[in-house]
C-alpha cells in the first residue's frame, strides 16, 4: 500500500485532535498488534485496530475515518484491557466516530411516531431499497436510539426497531421475531410514561448548544 504522508504539522494536528478528544497519548503505541490479535471482529474489518492507530500517528485522517473498522467496533474493551502501553483503544474508536459525525454533514435520520407518517416512509423505503453498509446502519441505529430516549425519556424498543428497519430498507429484518417477543411479553407496544420527559429534552438541548459553541471556537 502506498500513501502520501501529510506534512509534519498536519500530521501532528490530526493526532493532537484525537489525543485531546480521547485523553490518550497515541505516540505510546509501538505497533505490537496485541489489540488486533484479541479483537473478536478483526476478521471482518477492512483495517485492523493497530493499523488505525498507525494512521493517526502518521496523520492519515482520511484513511483512519473511512474504514469500516471504527463502525464495527463493539466497544468490548478487549484491546484497551490488553494494551501493554495502557492505551484505551475503545475510547480512541469513540473519538474517531464522534469526529466523523461532527465533520460529515450529519445525516438526519427521519423518525416518526404517527402511523400516517410511518406508512409514507414505509412506501418510500420500498422504492429506495437496501442500504447495506455498516457505517450507515450503525449511524442510523445510534441516532434513532438517542432520538427515542430524547423523545420518551427511556428506550422504546418497538419504535426503535420499526424506525430502524424502515430507514435501513431491511423492512422485515427481526420482524418475524416480533410476534414471538410480543407473546413472551418481551416488548411493549406502548412506550412507558416517564414524568421527567421535559428534563431529558433539556439535557439534550443544553449539550447540543454547548457542543455547537465549542465547535465554533475551534
Amino acid at each position: 500500500m502506498k500513501y502520501e504522508l501529510p506534512r509534519e504539522n498536519d500530521q501532528q494536528h490530526f493526532m493532537s485532535i484525537i489525543e485531546k478528544m480521547s485523553g490518550q497519548n497515541i505516540r505510546l503505541c509501538y505497533q505490537c498488534g496485541k489489540c488486533s490479535a484479541g479483537c473478536p471482529i478483526c476478521h471482518e474489518m477492512e483495517d485492523s485496530p493497530n493499523q488505525i492507530i498507525r494512521y493517526i500517528q502518521l496523520g492519515l485522517k482520511e484513511q483512519a475515518l473511512s474504514k469500516n473498522t471504527i463502525w464495527l467496533c463493539a466497544s468490548c474493551q478487549t484491546c484497551s484491557t490488553r494494551c501493554p502501553q495502557q492505551l484505551d483503544l475503545a475510547k480512541i474508536m469513540d473519538s474517531l466516530r464522534i469526529l466523523h459525525q461532527q465533520e460529515s454533514l450529519q445525516q438526519n435520520i427521519p423518525f416518526s411516531t404517527s402511523a400516517k407518517d410511518f406508512g409514507h416512509r414505509f412506501y418510500n423505503s420500498l422504492l429506495n431499497g437496501l442500504q447495506m453498509d455498516v457505517r450507515s446502519n450503525v449511524n442510523a441505529f445510534s441516532d434513532l436510539f438517542l432520538k427515542m430516549v430524547r423523545h420518551y425519556g427511556r428506550q422504546f424498543e418497538t419504535g426503535l426497531i420499526y424506525n430502524y428497519n424502515v430507514n435501513s430498507g431491511f423492512l422485515f429484518s427481526n420482524v418475524l421475531k416480533g410476534p414471538m417477543m410480543l407473546m413472551k411479553a418481551k416488548i411493549n407496544l406502548i412506550p412507558e410514561d416517564v414524568k421527567r420527559r421535559e428534563k431529558v429534552e433539556k439535557i439534550f438541548s443544553k449539550i447540543e448548544q454547548l457542543e455547537k459553541s465549542e465547535k465554533e471556537k475551534r
Partner: peptide, 11 residues
C-alpha cells in the same frame, strides 16, 4: 448506553 458514548462524551 453505547449510542451515547459514541456520539457525545457529555451526553
Amino acid at each position: 448506553s453505547t449510542p451515547a458514548h459514541t456520539t457525545s462524551e457529555l451526553l
